[in-house]
């Protein structure tokens, strides 16, 4: 696949990355965004889609999902291109001064400017604290430890153990039960965070003998050379027993790790990117950092601060992308050319 060429590549499609599209778009700069999640919004949609936010100027109350929807709408006139479900993996400086960002899906994006709007980093599955778990993570299709189900068919005929009590855990219990050799669900209590109808379906499958459910937790994994053979389960009364399993699917949601950004050669201070407060540029020219990922004297991790940072970053980024052009600062309320870009005049 040929590399994509654009003005700006933004790492992170959270609220600040989305607003950066708008600010850059007003200056005629085109953006591509890379995000490991499968949708826009970052922490707003992943952690608190339904929780109200009260400190967005001019919007007394808005949920994480609503705010994301509105930012998407605001950015839409500038036709941002999203690369969802991809992790920004490597960053390379090209001879012509531009940057090439490569993702774990093989997408290559060449841009004049890189904007890191990655929040606290990448959302990755929570890994249960079991000794040696990583040795079972790449055992192969359908066997060992998996944190997501890509192809259901690979799990056919396997002894599957699922842990967790949320929607993912219950959904996969219901979907994999028909094709598993055996399917066991373990959870620390006889109650579930998952939607009630999923829980009812699971209880039905349990009655029919198609699913086994234990109030228990996984204490150890057993197997040889990365091939899982079974686990030790422990009940509430601390009784332990062996359970045979080819496949272990832990579903405890996501956590945030800085990830490959740490290897990009950008100067970091305690996992944050120090920036100047005029340009919001890192100590590497051409790489900017806005939102929760940056740090400077007086930094506040607030969405509203990120919006301000995006606006100033865009001004500086313009001069990197268009070194021979003069930036004309205009207001959306009065500029007919800006209104034309926004599609409102």
């Amino acid at each position: 696949m040929a590399a994509i060429e654009t003005d700006v590549v933004i790492i992170g499609a959270g609220p600040i990355g989305l607003f950066a599209v708008f600010e850059l778009g007003l200056l005629d700069l085109k953006c591509h965004l890379v995000d490991i999640l499968d949708r826009a919004g970052g922490q707003c949609t992943e952690l608190y889609p339904e929780k109200p936010i009260y400190d967005i100027p001019g919007i007394p109350i808005v949920t994480g999902q609503e705010l994301t929807n509105r930012l998407m709408e605001q950015a839409a006139p500038f036709a941002p291109q999203f690369h969802f479900g991809e992790m920004a993996k490597t960053l390379e400086k090209l001879d012509d001064g531009r940057w090439k960002l490569s993702t774990d899906a093989g997408t290559e994006i060449i841009a004049h400017v890189v904007v890191v709007a990655a929040g606290a980093g990448s959302f990755v599955p929570k890994r249960p604290p079991l000794p040696g778990i990583e040795t079972f993570e790449n055992a192969g299709d359908g066997i060992g430890v998996h944190y997501a189900v890509r192809k259901m068919e690979t799990f056919r005929g396997k002894n599957i153990l699922i842990a967790g009590g949320g929607d993912s855990a219950l959904d996969w219990v219901i979907n994999l039960a028909p094709l598993a050799k055996s399917l066991t669900l373990v959870h620390h209590r006889d109650g579930f965070r998952a939607a009630a109808h999923s829980v009812n379906q699971m209880r039905e499958l349990e009655k029919e003998g198609k699913v086994k459910f234990h109030i228990a937790s996984v204490k150890a994994l057993h197997g040889d050379a990365g091939k899982l053979s079974g686990v030790t389960l422990a009940g509430h009364d601390k009784t332990e027993w062996h359970h045979e399993a080819d496949t272990f699917l832990p579903f405890f949601g996501l956590t945030i790790k800085l990830g490959p950004i740490a290897e990009f050669g950008i100067n970091l201070h305690e996992n944050l990117i120090p920036v100047d407060t005029a340009r919001f540029e890192s100590q590497t020219p051409g790489i900017f950092a806005i939102g929760d990922i940056n740090t400077y004297t007086g930094k506040l991790k607030l969405i509203l601060s990120g919006f301000h940072e995006a606006a100033l970053m865009a001004q500086a980024a313009f001069h990197v992308c268009r070194p021979h052009e003069k930036l004309r600062f205009q207001y959306t309320t009065s500029s007919s050319s800006l209104q034309k870009k926004l599609g409102v005049s």
Binding site: R127, P128, G164, H188, R189, R193, S217, F252, G253
Partner: peptide, 13 residues
């Protein structure tokens, strides 16, 4: 909070 604990690892009583 009880629901959210379903997303925690190594939950104990």
């Amino acid at each position: 909070e009880i629901d959210m604990l379903d997303m925690a690892l190594a939950v104990e009583p």
